[in-house]
Computed example of a mutant assay.
Amino acid sequence: MSNLSKLESQSIFLLREAYRTFRRIGMPWSMGKDSNVLLWLAQKAFCGRIPFPVLHIDTTYEFPEMLEFRAWAQKHYGLQLIVKINEEAIARGVGYETHDPVTVTHELKTVALQQALAEYQWDALITGIRRDEDPTRAKERYFSPRSSEGEWNYKDQPPEFWNQFALPPKGAGGHVRVQPLLDWTEYDVWLYIRREKIPIPPLYFARNGKRFRSIGCRPITHPVPSTASTVDEIIAELYSTRTPERAGRAQDHHERNAMQKLRAKGFL
Score class of each variant (00 low, 15 high):
W40E: 15
P199A: 12
I50D: 11
S2C: 04
R249I: 11
A124F: 05
I12S: 11
P244F: 03
T103V: 09
K75A: 15
A166W: 01
L38G: 07
G171E: 15
D100V: 01
L108M: 05
R194E: 14
N153H: 10
R249T: 09
E245A: 08
H222R: 13
F267D: 03
A250W: 06
H106G: 03
K6S: 09
N208F: 07
D134R: 02
Y96Q: 08
D252R: 11
A73Y: 04
E140P: 00
E255Y: 01
D156P: 01
N208R: 12
P219C: 08
G26R: 05
E107S: 13
V37D: 02
Q121K: 14
E87Y: 07
A236I: 03
N163F: 11
R177G: 04
A71G: 08
A73K: 09
Q115E: 15
L81W: 09
T243A: 02
E97K: 12
Q251H: 14
N3R: 14
L39D: 08
E8L: 02
C217H: 09
R242S: 15
R242E: 15
R242V: 10
L81G: 10
L113H: 01
N36P: 00
K44M: 14
L117W: 09
E8T: 10
L79V: 02
A247T: 08
E245K: 06
I50E: 06
A112T: 01
A118K: 15
H76C: 01
T98P: 02
Q260T: 09
D232I: 01
P28H: 07
C217G: 12
A118S: 14
N257P: 02
R246W: 03
P64F: 09
G209S: 08
D134V: 07
S214F: 04
F52Y: 14
E237T: 04
I85Q: 13
K265W: 10
R263Y: 05
K261N: 09
W122L: 09
V176S: 07
K139T: 12
Q260H: 14
A118H: 10
L4Y: 08
S30A: 13
D132W: 04
D232T: 09
